[in-house]
Computed example of a mutant assay.
Amino acid sequence: MFYREYPPHPALAAHVECVWAARAPGFAHAHRVLPDNCVDILWQDAGQPGFAVGMMSSAILVASEQSVRTLAVRFKPGMARLFLATPLHAITDQRADIDLLWGRSDADRLADALWEGDASERQRLAIIERELLRRLRAAIAAATPRGAALVQQALRALEGSGGALRVEELAAQLSVSRQHLAAQFRQHVGLSPKMFARICRFRAATAAIRTTPTPEWAQLALDCGYFDQSHLIHDFQALTATTPERFHFSNHRVA
Rank of each mutant, 00 (worst) to 15 (best):
M1N: 07
E5C: 08
H9Y: 02
H9R: 02
H15M: 01
E17K: 12
W20V: 05
R23Q: 14
A24T: 13
A24Q: 10
F27D: 06
A30W: 00
L34W: 15
D36S: 13
V39D: 05
I41Y: 07
L42M: 07
L42Y: 09
W43L: 07
D45V: 03
D45K: 03
D45L: 02
A46M: 05
G47H: 07
P49E: 05
P49Q: 04
G50V: 01
G50D: 06
V53S: 14
G54P: 12
A59E: 12
V62T: 10
A63S: 13
S64I: 01
S64Y: 11
E65H: 10
E65N: 11
Q66H: 14
V68T: 15
L71W: 04
A80K: 00
R81Q: 14
P87N: 07
P87L: 08
L88M: 15
R95S: 15
R95H: 12
A96H: 11
A96C: 15
D97W: 13
L101Y: 13
R104L: 15
D106H: 11
D106G: 06
A107W: 06
D108H: 09
A111I: 03
E116N: 05
E116R: 15
A119N: 08
L125V: 09
L125T: 08
A126V: 00
I127T: 14
E129L: 00
E131Y: 10
L132T: 02
L133I: 00
L136P: 01
L136E: 00
A143P: 08
T144V: 11
R146F: 05
R146Q: 13
A148I: 01
A148E: 10
A148R: 02
L150Y: 09
V151P: 01
V151W: 00
Q153T: 03
Q153V: 02
A154P: 01
R156D: 14
L158S: 01
G160Y: 09
G160K: 04
A171W: 08
Q173N: 10
S175P: 00
S175I: 05
S177I: 05
A182N: 11
A183G: 07
H188I: 01
P193S: 07
F196M: 06
R198A: 12
R198K: 14
C200T: 04
R201N: 05
R201V: 01
A204F: 06
A208G: 02
R210I: 04
R210W: 05
R210C: 09
Q219I: 10
A221M: 01
A221P: 04
L222Q: 13
D223P: 06
F227V: 13
D228V: 03
Q229F: 07
S230H: 10
S230M: 09
S230G: 14
L232D: 07
H234A: 15
D235R: 06
Q237S: 11
L239I: 10
L239S: 07
H248D: 04
